[in-house]
Simulated assay, not measured.
Amino acid sequence: MLDARDDRLAIRDLVENWAVWRDAGEWQRFRTVWHDDGIMMATWFQGTADEFIAVSKSGFERGVRILHFLGGSSIDVAGDRAIAQTKMTISQRADVEDVLCDVVCTGRFYDFLEKRDGRWGLVLRQPIYEKDRIDPVDPKQVPQLDRKLLESFPEGYRHLAYLQTGIGYRVKPDMPGLTGDAVQALYARGRRWLAGGPAV
């Protein structure tokens, strides 16, 4: 029981460090939460941890701010493998149709983790996007959104996708949401991971 508690504490610490170090631009420390073969999935990026760090650093230096706030966490541990689900919000500020806006997206980080040589690390991070909203920074200004484009994105992250598309990102159109086939398939992959199967 003590070992399982220590594992959960170490994993929660890792999840919190991910958010703090990435948002602060502490890239060398941020690299330590990943295993060498780690994979990051996001609306705007899908690839290796090293690639994710490189593009995040580049965006950070250009003034792109994608910030994260964490809530409660549920962690399932099976030996040297774990699945962690952590409530989170993603916040991004940018011009939307010439109006400075904030988008806030609520969801969960769904993490595949493994303990190797005594150290827990991320093998795969797959966010689940549950709902989002857009707000102008100045409430007197209202962006005129392209309704057809907005509704072409999944409900759970359509405003985030609209903003990211507008600033030049290619957004993945089939990320898991609160319900549906994509999130059920993700849960099934999580169960297989805990039973010894592959993460991807």
Rank of each mutant, 00 (worst) to 15 (best):
G118N: 05
V142P: 04
Q141F: 06
D138G: 15
D117G: 00
Q184A: 14
V137Y: 07
G121L: 01
W120F: 11
G166P: 01
R170D: 12
Q164F: 05
A185P: 02
D117A: 03
D146E: 11
H159E: 02
V123A: 09
K148L: 04
K140T: 15
Y157F: 10
P173N: 09
H159W: 01
L149G: 02
Y110T: 09
D174C: 02
P173L: 08
L178G: 08
L160H: 09
E151T: 05
Y187G: 00
R116A: 09
P127N: 14
D146V: 05
Q164C: 04
Q144I: 09
T179K: 13
D181L: 10
C105Q: 15
I167G: 13
R119S: 02
D111L: 13
R170E: 12
R119C: 00
L149Y: 03
G118D: 04
A161P: 06
L160V: 03
R108K: 13
I128N: 01
L186R: 08
P136D: 15
Y129N: 01
Q164M: 10
I167T: 14
P127L: 12
V171D: 05
L149Q: 07
A161S: 15
V183H: 01
D181A: 12
G177E: 10
D132F: 11
V142Y: 12
V123W: 03
T165D: 06
D181Y: 08
L160E: 10
V183A: 04
D181G: 07
P139Q: 10
K115C: 15
A185L: 07
V171I: 14
R125K: 13
I134K: 02
D174A: 08
I128K: 02
V183G: 03
Y187R: 03
P136V: 15
E130F: 10
G180C: 00
P154I: 01
V123N: 06
L160D: 05
V123G: 04
E151R: 03
L163V: 10
L124D: 08
C101R: 05
G107S: 05
F112V: 02
D117M: 00
Q126T: 11
V104Q: 12
R189C: 06
C101H: 06
K172P: 02
I134R: 02
